[in-house]
């Protein structure tokens, strides 16, 4: 058995960190931090995202890509993506760099291959940063309004906002179920080489815990479906995307001059990056 040695103590970080990750996800999902994009019209934010996400794919010029990447970093920081997403992103980037360095050593200083690999890394990095900046700034209502405005089926807009409503509940329930497994299941044995067995145990519990979660959710949905009926959602959806409900909901969206300035500025910045790439030495 794995009784901890006398004097060793739990710090409580195991639970605290799960709690922190959960809250951080909520802050990201519900756009609680503010940032320059969170005050904009959701359609403008989505347009901004499309510009930022597409631009890198039109060039193979490393200078342009580096400038775009730099702009995306600034954008992401200004949108306040928070420590969790930033940390994960930096971790991924560092992993990529280490991988490239090893590759250089193995391939015997063949830098051209490495440059070929840096290119997609920069492109994907830019797209990731822009996506994070956009979605951190949209709360669920804004996303579902924007989807509705873009004529996505009403069901998709609803599913997104319902997902946002349910995820915190499901995370809590999942945590309780995992705790149940930890407390009532077989106690952890020896951790094994490099903690191999501990990892297997954690994964096994993580998978097992989905079974009650799925069944409980299925049970829960019965009332939700009836409620959607009594609250007119089913009827409104059946009326199609041109229904009265849609126009009422969208009436509160305002595309202001500031939104126009944001988009114009973004397009100019991207154009500037391309122009700079043509001028600057490779």
């Amino acid at each position: 058995m794995s009784a901890p040695a006398a004097g060793r103590s739990r710090s409580g970080l195991d639970r605290a960190s799960v709690e922190w990750v959960k809250l951080e996800l909520m802050r990201v999902a519900y756009a609680t931090r503010g940032g320059f994009l969170s005050r904009r019209d959701p359609r403008a934010v989505i347009a901004w995202y499309v510009v930022g996400a597409i631009a890198p794919w039109f060039t193979y010029d490393l200078t342009v890509l580096a400038i775009l990447f730099g702009l995306a970093v600034v954008g992401a920081l200004a949108a306040r993506i928070g420590p969790l997403l930033l940390g994960l992103f930096v971790l991924g980037l560092l992993g990529e760099l280490v991988y490239l360095l090893i590759l250089v050593l193995v391939l015997g200083h063949d830098w051209s291959t490495v440059l070929d690999l840096v290119m997609p890394t920069l492109k994907l990095g830019t797209v990731s940063l822009v996506s994070m900046a956009a979605f951190v700034s949209l709360d669920p209502e804004k996303i579902s309004d924007a989807l509705l405005a873009l004529r996505a089926p009403a069901m998709i807009g609803f599913a997104v906002s319902y997902g946002y409503r349910m995820i915190p509940v499901l995370i809590d329930e999942y945590q309780t179920v995992v705790d149940g497994h930890r407390l009532r299941g077989a106690p952890p044995g020896p951790v094994g080489f490099l903690g191999r067995r501990a990892v297997v145990r954690v994964c096994w519990i993580a998978v097992q815990a989905f079974y009650p979660l799925v069944l409980n959710t299925a049970k829960r949905t019965r009332t939700t479906v009836e409620a959607l009926e009594t609250r007119g959602f089913t009827a409104a959806t059946a009326a199609g995307s041109g229904g009265l409900a849609r126009s009422l909901r969208l009436a509160r969206l305002r595309f202001t001059a500031a939104d126009g300035v944001l988009l114009a500025g973004t397009v100019l910045a991207v154009a500037g990056a391309f122009a700079a790439g043509a001028v600057l030495p490779k």
Binding site: Y162, T221, A227, R231, A236
Partner: peptide
């Protein structure tokens, strides 16, 4: 399980919006 929207105001307005 009757609450389907993320915020209270949005949820309360849900039915009147749906009914146009």
């Amino acid at each position: 399980n009757q609450l389907v929207r993320p915020t209270v105001r949005d949820d309360v307005a849900f039915a009147p919006l749906n009914l146009g």
